[in-house]
């Protein structure tokens, strides 16, 4: 990790720790000046970004966490069978505006199925989903067109909500930039690397400013920097009042989320608990 990447990760950690934006700008600029003038490896000078961010957060103080808003997604009694195999049994989840929920569980326990049912892309055998707001869904795979350029994807998806071409392109490029990707290059989606294609996938999900965002393991193929940017963006969206559900198998990120739904079969039906 070079100095720029360290500073980026540091800023994301400060944001996560709810340090005020003006304080973040100030502290990051100070650290950058220190590194530029004094040289040296930031890991040696400051240590890991998360630990240094925690120290700074303690010293400068943090903003109070926004109170969760109204319920935007409520799924209850979701049961789904494939043939004789019951994949989901009576699973439920309630997510409010300004919350991130993680759906976890072993492979094949129905995480993606649960998300598709919440998105209305698959029908359950039993149960109901109530949505209050516009929803967007980022699938684990697919969701992009091989022979279209990133800008064309933005125009296509943006047109769904009546965005003009230039607005959609501008919004798409700005969102991609927040994930550390300059998307203006005219490269068809099939020629993008796996991680970059996934950034395109994720960018398309947030393009229309949805109220509810469903993400099915959206970070596959991300390098460390992109992964940090991804969580940084999720936290920004949460602070902006979005309800986010993210399927994940990376349990080390659970401290960043507000709710956890564990669909592991040993937990009958999946049990939401405070994260």
């Amino acid at each position: 990790m070079n100095a720029d990447q360290w500073l980026h990760a540091f800023a994301a950690e400060l944001h996560h720790d709810r340090v005020a934006p003006e304080d973040i700008r100030h502290v990051v600029a100070e650290a950058a000046t220190h590194l530029r003038d004094g040289g040296g490896d930031p890991w040696t000078v400051f240590g890991p970004p998360d630990r240094y961010a925690a120290v700074i957060a303690e010293s400068v103080g943090t903003r109070p966490a926004p109170r969760p808003g109204p319920v935007l997604l409520h799924a209850e009694g979701i049961t789904k069978r494939y043939g004789r195999r019951t994949v989901l049994r009576d699973a439920g989840l309630t997510v409010r505006a300004g919350q991130i929920a993680a759906v976890i569980g072993a492979n094949g326990c129905g995480k993606s199925t649960f998300l598709r049912i919440c998105a209305g892309l698959a029908s359950p055998d039993r149960g109901q989903v109530t949505l209050a707001g516009r929803l967007a869904y980022c699938p684990q795979q697919g969701g992009t067109a091989d022979f279209l350029l990133p800008d064309e994807h933005f125009v296509l998806v943006g047109a769904g909500r009546g965005m003009t071409r230039s607005t959609a392109r501008r919004a798409g490029r700005a969102t991609a930039r927040q994930l550390g990707w300059e998307s203006a290059d005219p490269v068809p989606a099939r020629q993008l690397s796996g991680g970059t294609r996934q950034k395109l996938n994720l960018t398309l999900s947030t393009l229309n400013e949805p109220d509810i965002l469903l993400l099915d393991e959206p970070y596959q193929g991300f390098d460390r920097g992109s992964y940090v940017n991804f969580w940084d963006q999720l936290l920004r969206l949460r602070d902006a009042g979005r309800a986010i559900v993210v399927v994940t198998h990376l349990l080390n990120q659970l401290d960043r989320v507000d709710l956890v739904l564990d669909l592991t079969p040993a937990v009958p039906g999946g049990r939401p608990c405070t994260g």
Binding site: G120, L121, A136, Y137, D146, R161
Partner: peptide, 15 residues
């Protein structure tokens, strides 16, 4: 066939 995976997303996007 190629549009099959993209269409649900477009449906949710307002189409």
């Amino acid at each position: 066939g190629a549009a099959r995976d993209l269409e649900p997303r477009l449906r949710l996007a307002g189409y």
